[in-house]
Amino acid sequence: MAKFLSLHDAVAANLSDGDVVAFEGFTHLIPHAAAHEAIRQGRRELTLVRMTPDIVYDQMIGLGMAKKVVFSYVGNPGVGLLRRLRDAVENAWPVPLEIEEHSHAAMANAYEAGAAGLPMAVFRGYRGAGLADVNPNIKMVECPFTGEILAAVPSMQPDVTFIHAQKANKKGDVLVEGIVGIQKEAVLAAGRAVVTVEEIVDNFDGLHPNACVLPAWTVSAICTVPGGAHPSYTHGYYGRDNVSYLEWDDISADRERFTAWMQANVFDASPEDFAGRVTKFRNAT
């Protein structure tokens, strides 16, 4: 059953060194504040999982928190490459980084299989694709009914998933809307789930009957962190800070500039700082 905790306490209680952890968000609802808290708490040896690792994964990788990253698209969307990740992959700075790479279809199917309690996912994919040759976790299986050759990947079941969401009610049920991405599957596939929300409301009366709600008993902890997705966005609350994504390209291009930026904006900052970062984007949704 969901506990209402401070972000510090929720991360401390649910994330340990060596964990397989997903900070999910498909452009939308990326849990930046939660990842920054993990950075401040100095977690190491993590296996970082996400379909679309972008700048917050670049930050964690640039600080040497990860031994491995599992992904299907690793870039700064619409801007370019992730420079800290490149430095880790190409130059082992600050530490070597193992990669396990999939396609979106494979990752999405793997999370869904994880949520469904299956050991693997089966789909029509990877035909002629080079990833099947370099990733031993991609296999081909034969359909026992038709003989069709299909792709199989292990299901994705992180030790812990972090997501951001619009709101929770007082019982701890969580509402996710807009581009829901992989949020629901990533929570239901994980051993533990921590959700940061924009606000806590009394109840969900008047919601659409099919709204995406994660019942309180599927969530380990809920933390109120207004602006907690910034520079990603929260549909209905504030828009995406595209300028910050563009600026990251320059900040991350240089090891010293990166390190100074992390000190000023993460180590010397707190979850409460996120609310101020989204003020000017609040009319943009």
């Binding site: 679309t52 992904f71 299907s72 698209y73 690793v74 870039g75 490459l81 992730l82 990740l85 490149r86 992959v89 190409e90 790479e101 396609s103 979106h104 279809a105 789909f123 029509r124 994919g125 990877y126 694709a129 990833l131």
Partner: peptide, 12 residues
């Protein structure tokens, strides 16, 4: 030599 973003949805 250069690590690019990868395929995303493109393979399927």
């Amino acid at each position: 030599k250069v690590r690019l973003p990868g395929g995303g949805g493109a393979p399927e």
